[in-house]
Design a binder for these strands. Structure first.
Lengths: 202, 202
DNA sequence: TGCTTGGTTGAATGTTCAATCAACTCATCT
DNA sequence: AGATGAGTTGATTGAACATTCAACCAAGCA
């Protein structure tokens, strides 16, 4: 096994574990045993546990298109459909994990109360990429929305609804909470699409 | 100091610390030193650290009216105004803490990945009380909303938006993310209020 | 052949943690 | 007075923790 392999295996394993158990509840020993790497090797590549987290957040940031958007948007052309296709991806995740898992970035954001600036900015960058992708959908459908619609704010709002909906489904262990939240969001967006382009709700 | 005092001081201190640092990052020693209680006394009242968390969650659950709703709804009569008055209370919290703190229940919900059933159900009960209070506002304003509006789902949606908006403001350390999210929610509710009662968006 | 360099090994370190417990205090009751 | 028991004290325990380090290995090059 060469160096790139070891580093990569550490990051992939840490990504899994942080998602399953959270960052604080994942020990370096957990990462070592699951990845079959010895402590010295891990500390050869990463100064400390937090730097592994930084590496994982960079993987998420750089992989949003290939890992998240592309799989969910395969075969979906309409930009509004893309918004709900992405949300449906989160629904699938909840279903296959019996409503136990959630958005890894959102979990980290609430789990780490006093994050290092590097970590906090990487979490923010992940959020920004996510909501910018959604805002791009609304941009592509701008001619079907009220013309004063703030597409960027709407992208942030969809992120908000996803995070809140996942949080509730997870807490109640009941997908109904996710579905009802998304249904309300769909109602809102349907209203926007049905609104005369000249209407102004500001 | 009598027994009730000691128990109460432990719970109040733990409530503070869990809010400031989170549950996992708060050590029993932290609770002991800030509350000026000795370890034996804490373990006299609580079998373990998790039972302190249970006590704190019970305080939140039983105190939602006196601690959360009453202060924010003082002098506010209109039920729709109450919804946004409560959200304004969270905004104030963010402002006075420089966007570092968040909803204590939401943080716990994402921080503890495999919660004990007792803990999980208490978190769910807290969410239920919160969204039921908001749903009650929509119920009180039912005659101003489209008649097929699912008021319970709308209460859950407001909780979702609050949690997501707080999460983003906290992650970016920027109140703008909270404000824009609430503005979008306000837009939606304004539309609902402006809709003919006979309209049907189902 | 021997040197250098990047990577590996895993026992050891020092710290922090939740939890324990035997000894104590003191108000209340008989 | 003597007994009872709820409550307190704080040193102690053992596990878990992130991190270190000296020894080691192997590929590439002089």
């Amino acid at each position: 096994m060469n160096a790139a392999d070891t580093r990569q295996r550490i990051l992939m394993t840490a990504m899994e574990l942080f998602w399953e158990k959270g960052y604080l509840s994942t020990s370096v020993a957990d990462i070592l045993s699951r990845s079959q790497v010895h402590s010295g090797s891990l500390y050869h590549f990463f100064p400390g546990k937090q730097d592994v987290l930084v590496g994982v957040l960079e993987l998420y940031r750089d992989g949003i298109d290939a890992m998240l958007l592309a799989p969910n948007w395969d075969g979906v052309d309409d930009p509004i459909d893309k918004v709900f296709a992405l949300l449906a991806g989160y629904r699938t995740h909840l279903i296959v994990t019996d409503c136990t898992y959630g958005c890894p970035i959102g979990s980290l954001a609430l789990e780490i109360h006093e994050p290092d600036p590097v970590v906090r900015e990487l979490m923010a960058a992940n959020f920004s990429n996510w909501s910018a992708a959604i805002a791009g959908c609304f941009e592509a459908a701008a001619d079907r929305l009220p013309k004063d619609t703030d597409r960027k704010a709407l992208g942030e709002f969809v992120l908000t609804v996803m995070e809140g909906a996942v949080m509730q489904a997870r807490t109640y262990r009941d997908i109904g909470y996710f579905d009802r939240n998304i249904a309300v969001l769909r109602d809102y967006i349907t209203i926007l699409l049905a609104t005369e382009k000249s209407a102004n709700f500001a």
